[in-house]
């Protein structure tokens, strides 16, 4: 029995696309604001997979992709902090984190 398993850049990119898609789906359909925040983290991680995979396969000696991924992680951490603060502030005013009830953009 010959298993011809192999792995290439495309595999990582497709995995990243799937993860990005799942995250995007969550962003678009979840009612809970915190859940949306979590899904954004998933999308950012999908991007990180891309960066690192391409860094390995295309520019292995430069580490540009890895450094970018570090910055992405930094920004994501900051984003989670701010996002949670905003959600808490909104919750304090509205007693809700349900995005369906937040239609202030309408008027």
């Amino acid at each position: 029995m010959q298993l011809t398993l192999s792995v290439s850049l495309t595999h990582y990119l497709v995995l990243s696309a799937i993860l990005f898609g799942i995250g995007l789906f969550g962003v678009l359909v979840k009612k809970n604001a915190i859940s949306v925040l979590i899904c954004i983290e998933l999308m950012l991680n999908a991007v990180n997979i891309n960066f690192i995979a391409i860094s390995k396969y295309v520019t292995p000696g430069d580490f540009i992709g890895q450094i970018f991924a570090i910055f992405v992680i930094t920004v994501a951490a900051a984003e989670v902090g701010i996002g949670l603060a905003i959600i808490i502030a909104i919750y304090r005013n509205r007693l809700s984190v349900n995005l369906d009830e937040f239609d202030w953009l309408k008027w």
Partner: peptide, 14 residues
Amino acid sequence: SQTGRLQNYALVFF
């Protein structure tokens, strides 16, 4: 089309 809901807008945006 103007629902005021962020996620609708995000959907259209994507």
